[in-house]
Design a protein around this nucleic acid. Structure first.
Lengths: 200, 200
DNA sequence: TGGCGTAAGTTGTCACTGTCTACATAGGAG
DNA sequence: CTCCTATGTAGACAGTGACAACTTACGCCA
């Protein structure tokens, strides 16, 4: 019955296993209330083993958040049209992809911007997060050069765009954009408002 | 030394005391890691007493979040100019007050939109939260009537504004709007972008 | 090849938590 | 004046994060 003899003393890839288990639980339980011990149990190791790879729970959560930024970055890059079409045709898919990412990974997205994954500022100022932010900055800079986007200081404009996307995503995640209260496609409406604020 | 005889058996106003203590700790510790038992200790009651007023910790946090919406509502109303000035002169003060509220109460603000205070949708769909959201909706509706704001379906436009303010506030709280990275007054820049998206 | 240092796991323990149950008190309605 | 019940207390329990002391076995170097 017990398969204790099967399992070797050393897991071999515990760090990855812990991360993947935690990601799974984050998704299943829609939150990070899960316990480190439960993660260890599901990974098939002792309750203290994860501590060999993460100093504490916050450190694990911080790594999950960073993975979230990695995934978001790839999602956005994948949604970026190769050809330089019109502003609308370029911006909307990316913006939609952003919101969709949050909708598909609500707990992960919350964690990324929450205060439980170490110090937020540390996570957000890390290379992996900043390079995700940079996608937007680059996009706006190129858009301004091409004359598609109103000329404004890029960083401030980027802040505005990011804020809009982030806020919108949170509203979606919280289920605050009920169609009967806010119209059929509030996301498109909001994105259009943003667009009208930046297009040349 | 011990003042056990001073304190009457019944506190008299424990519910309020618990809330106020929790609010204080929320502010002091910049988060809601505090324990219910510590709250009870500081309130000078036994560790189980708070359970007579809140079924669990999440319920207490939910009440704190609702108080946050109350305070935000009053802050916004106080910032709303009485006279109907220009759009900019009306909108900017309110928007700034919103962001400033988040900056001044980072933990409370996070809690209001976090997932730890009961189910977020329940908190946000409560009367006390909705009436706060309504300030913005009303403002936009009146602005459109007066011809100051571009005519768009109000709910979608409101979603866009709220998203912008919320996202901006989060960026500020997280310290992501470093002047050297994003310009001197990124908040104003972002709000201006928003304004350019809604003004007639 | 063989021995060994050390990274990676294990068990055991600690203080402490949220929550439950049983009991104590006292304030107010009848 | 009495008793009901809301409010508070004490005690118990399972389970947690974190640490310490002990084991195992991988992989490097003589």
């Amino acid at each position: 019955m017990t398969e204790q003899s099967d399992r070797p003393y050393h897991h071999g890839d515990l760090r990855r296993a812990v991360i993947e288990t935690a990601l799974a639980m984050l998704h299943e339980e829609e939150g990070w209330q899960f316990t480190l011990r439960e993660v260890a149990r599901r990974a098939g190791v002792s309750h203290a083993a994860p501590y060999k790879h993460f100093p504490d729970k916050a450190a694990l959560l911080a790594e999950l958040a960073l993975i979230g930024f990695d995934r978001l970055r790839e999602t956005l890059l994948a949604a970026l049209p190769a050809s330089a079409a019109s502003l609308r045709e370029t911006f909307l898919p990316v913006a939609r992809a952003y919101v969709a990412f949050g909708e598909a990974n609500p707990a992960l997205y919350r964690l990324m911007f929450g205060a439980d994954a170490g110090k937020p500022s540390e996570v957000h100022l890390s290379e992996r997060a900043l390079s995700t932010f940079a996608i937007l900055t680059d996009f706006l800079a190129r858009g301004q050069e091409a004359g598609l986007i109103r000329e404004r200081p890029v960083p401030g404009q980027a802040a505005a765009c990011w804020a809009q996307l982030h806020g919108l995503t949170m509203l979606v995640i919280d289920g605050l954009l009920l169609p009967e209260k806010v119209g059929d496609d509030a996301v498109t409406a909001a994105l259009t408002t943003l667009l009208e604020g930046i297009e040349a």
